[in-house]
């Protein structure tokens, strides 16, 4: 067997196992860590497809930043697992239907001529081909408007999230570091000269 095929099966097996554990793990922190493992193996799969930018960006953005914050939140939550499991069977039919629809859609997309033809994956690029550079060139030439549009939508989402959660509290004292640094000792300390007390006679 070719090394690449072997790697593919290794990454896929660990990916499937980790994905399964994400939804079956009892402890939410364990579930998040399995999700991290799943992302890592997905990145490995993309590396075997010579998509090194996507693979490294996945590790950098999802594993390095998003999942860290996710873990942060999950650790802070006070999760009662028995209460979470109460609605399991009641919600099962809806969840199963949604899952089946998604699986059917994926099968439908992947069985189209575009993916089935295989031209997509078999072409191996020369060693000096830089995936990152090509992607950057495309993003800033052919797809510059969709790209900028996407970034503006994300910016709007960021600002909306900040505005929705910003609470201006009036009962806290704010510090202005510039003012703190500019303070001179004369502003804070008053030296009072007092005459020495008279000796008791």
């Amino acid at each position: 067997m070719e090394a690449k095929t072997l790697l593919f099966y290794l990454f896929s097996a660990v990916l499937l196992f980790a994905a399964l554990r994400v939804i079956t793990a009892r402890n939410p922190v364990h579930a998040v860590l399995y999700l991290v493992l799943a992302f890592f193996n997905a990145a490995g799969l993309w590396l075997t497809l010579e998509a090194e930018f996507l693979a490294l960006a996945l590790v950098m953005v999802y594993v390095g930043a998003v999942m860290v914050l996710f873990l942060f939140v999950v650790m802070m939550l006070d999760i009662d697992i028995t209460r979470l499991r109460q609605g399991f069977w009641a919600n099962m039919p809806l969840a199963a239907t949604l899952g089946l629809v998604m699986a059917a859609e994926m099968v439908w997309v992947l069985s189209t001529d575009f993916f089935a033809s295989g031209v997509f994956f078999n072409e191996s690029m020369p060693a000096d081909y830089s995936n990152t550079k090509e992607l950057g060139r495309l993003l800033f030439t052919d797809y510059v408007y969709p790209f900028e549009l996407a970034s503006i939508i994300l910016l709007v989402a960021i600002i909306a999230a900040v505005v929705l959660t910003l609470r201006r509290r009036t009962d806290v004292r704010h510090l202005d570091p510039a003012k703190q640094i500019a303070v001179k000792h004369a502003d804070r300390i008053r030296v009072v000269q007092m005459p020495a007390e008279k000796e008791a006679e």
């Binding site: 090194e52 930018f53 490294l56 590790v59 950098m60 594993v63 390095g64 990152t132």
Partner: peptide
């Protein structure tokens, strides 16, 4: 992609 690897 050394710098990307490094950041990742």
């Amino acid at each position: 992609a050394g710098v990307l690897f490094l950041l990742a």
